[in-house]
Nucleic acid binder design. Structure first.
Length: 333
DNA sequence: CGTCCACAGGAATAAGTGGCGT
DNA sequence: ACGCCACTTATTCCTGTGGACG
């Protein structure tokens, strides 16, 4: 019944993008100067998780690569490569020019210079989760290289721009900004249908069931597809020929946990403790949160450090804060 | 409506880590 | 083995500020 499990994987990029045609066109147009040896403005994609930002970016770049033979492209997730070094190295890797580089012994601008020298043709760079970039000025570095076209992805505009150096910001703010919103239920159904047609044997899941999955995912394609994957796996393992409603109901928490766990894995014990306090007791005021936290752990970190943790957890999309200063409350997302 | 203070977040500083060449 | 260097993480200190409260 599972013909092609890969279509349910996180990083899968479908050949046909549904319900994001306008976005694909807009980004395509933004990249158009590449055809005539110009250099495009920076493109920003904003929106919550599971709304297709990464997918659309990758798809559009794939199309461009298929169109033009003399163009390079590289995808960088700034979660993994969050330093200037990491990003530059990844970009050199993308054009097979990384050679031998030692983290410490390589002079500061060696990587940058090497990248600039090696580039002879357009290089489209997708910077995903760009708000996680610890060293912003690398954005400015890349901006200065004429061959490089940037597509930057982040959850919220406010996560990116306020932290940027003003000089960097003023350059980047002139770029194109695209806001992605949550999918509607029927849009999610269409997305799911596409995957089902490719990945599953006909008749394994009904249209009604897909509607149910879409409804439970509340606009998040990541959760929707994850739910379907979990249900399909459950059916596969029990040698069933069809997905049952129970499998779907069971798949939802599984998919959500997976999304949650993704972020949680990146947190330290202290950060996880904070997350669980907020999850259990939220919405919770800063003072109370810190009091509870210092009770629960044996060696509490100072307040300043806890504030840094909370900011980080919030950026992971696990928590959200509301209000300013004394009136602020932390709550689960 | 003014004062106060809990809070956010920047900067400087200290302590710890890991890879490197010698 | 050793020190060096780049870099990370936590702490202390500090400033600005918005909401609470008299």
């Amino acid at each position: 019944m599972l013909n092609q499990a890969s279509v349910f994987q996180e990083q899968f990029v479908p050949a046909d993008i549904v319900h994001r045609e306008d976005e694909v066109t807009t980004i395509s147009n933004a990249l158009r100067p590449i055809h005539s040896h110009g250099n495009p403005e920076v493109t920003f994609l904003f929106g919550p998780t599971g709304v297709g930002k990464t997918c659309v970016a990758k798809h559009t770049v794939n199309e461009l690569e298929a169109d033009l033979s003399d163009v390079d492209a590289q995808y960088v997730n700034c979660w993994q490569d969050y330093t200037r070094f990491g990003v530059l190295y990844k970009l050199l890797e993308g054009i097979d020019a990384h050679g031998t580089v030692h983290r410490q012994s390589t002079p500061k601008d060696e990587l940058f210079n090497r990248l600039r020298e090696q580039l002879s043709r357009p290089y489209v760079v997708i910077l995903d989760e760009v708000d996680q970039l610890a060293e912003d000025h690398v954005l400015y570095d890349l901006y200065r290289i004429p061959e490089i076209s940037l597509i930057c992805i982040a959850n919220r505009k406010d996560d990116v721009f306020p932290t940027l150096d003003t000089r960097v910001r003023s350059r980047l703010e002139t770029g194109l900004e695209l806001q992605f919103d949550r999918y509607s239920q029927s849009e999610l159904v269409d997305i799911l249908s596409g995957r089902v047609n490719e990945g599953l044997t006909a008749g394994v899941v009904t249209d009604d069931q897909l509607r149910r999955v879409a409804e439970l995912a509340s606009g998040d394609a990541r959760v929707a597809i994850g739910t379907l994957r979990a249900a399909a796996n459950a059916a596969h393992q029990s040698n069933a020929t069809r997905i049952t409603d129970a499998m779907i109901t069971q798949g939802v928490p599984e998919a959500r946990q997976r999304v949650e766990k993704d972020g949680l894995d990146r947190l330290t014990d202290h950060q996880q403790e904070l997350y669980y306090i907020v999850k259990d007791d939220g919405p919770i005021a800063p003072g109370e949160l810190y009091a509870t936290y210092s009770e629960r752990v044996s060696d509490p970190r100072c307040k300043r450090t806890v504030r840094k943790y909370l900011r980080k957890i919030e950026q992971y999309g696990l928590l959200e804060s509301d209000g300013q200063k004394r009136a602020r409350t932390y709550d689960e997302r």
